[in-house]
Amino acid sequence: MPQTPPSRKPRNPYHTGPVSDHFDGTYFFNPGGIVPAGFREFLRWQFGGGRVAWPKVAPSPFPPAKPDDRVDGDGLRVTMVGHASLLIQVAGLNILTDPVWSPRTSPFSFAGPKRVVGPGIAFDDLPPIDIVLVTHNHYDHLDLATLRRLHEEHGPHIVTPLGNDTIIHRVIPEAKISDMDWGDQISFWDDVTIDCEPCHHWSARGTRDRRMALWSAFVITTPAGKIYHIGDTGFHDGINYRTVAEKHGSFRLANLPIGAYEPRWLMKGQHQNPEEAVRGMQLCNAAYVAGHHFATVQLTNEGIEDPIRALAVALEQEGVDAERFHALRAGEVFDVPAV
């Protein structure tokens, strides 16, 4: 009788490259980390109850911002668009992170998580965008409709981890993209660099491409100071925070996620909670933090204001001045003090 052929890993449609300490030739992974939950755990969560209802509309206390064209000298300004979309203005550069202007963070226009607050900057009020950082390919971070519009109107340089360039190029073939592995560095002008650094997360655009594109954090080094940007991460015992501090020293600003963390048994490996974000701030030697990834779209169980309340408790318990950790609402502008 014919033998059953040996099982084979599926082909990775996004990236081919050498095996490394976080890539096995098909799948990316977190070394020594937590494997993403499977379908059974997903069903347990979906039917387990405990989700706090969000309002359908939750206007920001801040009006939509109208940014200046450039911020030069020692200035460092961060403006919240919403969720993980931030406008960073520093050293004469305008940098957008994980830009999403679509009404839903979903593969569908008619279903999926819907934003409860409009973008904190109207798209037409954006200054000239030079660089776009895309940290990974989940729909609340990689929005192809927004990237296409940015390409057409601004032509930015897109920086993203391995494999995500393929996803973007399929829709925007002419886009200028730098794909980066953990540990890579690229330069902009003579005095601005971007390093691609590890974070503890995962990736997927559908049901059959889980962990086939890389996820990352970024370190932006400028004459005005260093910025540590994380789109999503599990705390991972603080390992990545300690490592980035050993490599880069300290940061004028860290952009850290503080939402989408309940229930902990499911979310611990992918989303840190506010208490862990405060510990991360301390471990990476950040003078100031812009908190994000909350109060825009409901992805998990906690209430819309729960991250803010939990953050206040964590800051008090750790003895950290609340003025150092700004949880930004849509339209809010944070001029980061000089260090």
Rank of each mutant, 00 (worst) to 15 (best):
P64G: 05
P113M: 01
V116L: 05
D24F: 00
G183L: 01
G163P: 03
H229V: 15
G49L: 06
M267A: 15
H22E: 03
D232Y: 15
Y241M: 15
Y288D: 12
P263L: 09
W189F: 15
C196I: 12
H15Q: 00
F218V: 04
I168K: 01
R279N: 12
S85E: 02
G249Q: 11
H236A: 13
R77Q: 11
F62L: 07
P63C: 02
Q298Y: 13
I129H: 10
Q3L: 15
I131H: 07
G48E: 06
G92L: 02
G73T: 11
I227V: 15
E246Y: 02
I121V: 12
H248G: 06
Q272E: 04
L142P: 05
G319S: 11
L96F: 02
T193A: 15
R148I: 01
P156Y: 02
I304A: 12
V132A: 07
H169N: 01
Q3N: 08
P119M: 06
N30Y: 03
R324Y: 06
M212F: 13
A217K: 03
H157I: 06
L162K: 07
F251M: 01
S60V: 14
T160K: 03
T300Y: 09
V244D: 00
G48Q: 08
P263V: 11
I158E: 00
G48N: 08
N30H: 06
M281F: 02
G303H: 14
A213L: 07
M80V: 02
E318V: 04
P10D: 11
E316H: 10
L133G: 03
R170Q: 07
R211G: 06
D179W: 07
A254W: 03
G33L: 01
P13Q: 05
V171D: 06
R309Y: 10
Q298I: 14
D21A: 08
P63I: 03
K114Y: 08
F62I: 06
R208K: 10
